[in-house]
Amino acid sequence: MNPDLAFLVEVLVGGLLSGVMYALVAIGFVLIYKTSGVLNFAQGAMLLFAALTFVSLTERGVPFAGAFAATLGVMALLGLAIERAVLRPLVNQPPITLFMATLGVAYVIEGAAQLAWGTQVHGLDLGIDDTPIDIAGILVSRFDLFAAAVAGLMVAVLSLFFRYTRTGLAFRAVADDPLAALNTGLRLPRIWAAVWIASGIVALVAGLLWGARLGVQFSLSLVVLKALPVLVLGGFDSILGAIVAGLIVGAVEKLSEVYLGPVIGSGIEGWIAYVAALGFLLLKPSGLFGLRSVERV
């Protein structure tokens, strides 16, 4: 293959695989937003808390499976506690109030994580070799391929869950019209609690993959910044949108940095995704796959 073309493909593949990692974080946001209309800013802190809990348990000699199960339990409890102690008392409050509440929750979780597990950084080895695979002169990361497979699996499971299970259908009903769902006998508090637990579990999966990539440390909570343009682009309420937008954002970032960077200055990938998302917002405010909100007046 022509070296320049091979390089372009390598940058593109790297970008797409990075985008999958962004989508993993974005899915956690989508789950909550889809069912309760809350933009959960604490998702990054939940991700940090999950990874820190898991790695701290393994470092104390708990086997991988045991640590995973225990962290799963902790995250389920955390999700439940947030819903019960913060969101439920604020039900029917304006969205900005709920958003500010999750902002506060983020700080509380970050502080609690350091209080409980200390401030040290940790390495996290999931047992996946991160040496690159050479495919026709193009290097592809094994770890990123694994992460992409996990993300794909998660999307498939969540899609099946929403489409075919009773609870999943209830989630969709609540998302479509909470009052109508209430009238049909659905118990909203129970559904919201379930979705917060699911969000905690998604945070655990994303936390482990991001933790293995960055190390488990405080800055793990900053990966939410990578998810925000993905949400704008894909729509806040679409899991498929999160994946597609993640791929687009990853590719735009990497291609821009490599090919536009030398022209307009390097370091542009920190903001170029936001430019793309803002531009898209002007054209389609609900995002690629987001539901258009129509109100009868």
Binding site: F7, S219, L222, V223, K226, E269, G270, W271
Partner: peptide
């Protein structure tokens, strides 16, 4: 770019 949690393009 800060914080540096993504460096694929730089290393390519």
């Amino acid at each position: 770019p800060h914080p540096g949690n993504e460096q694929q393009s730089q290393w390519l």
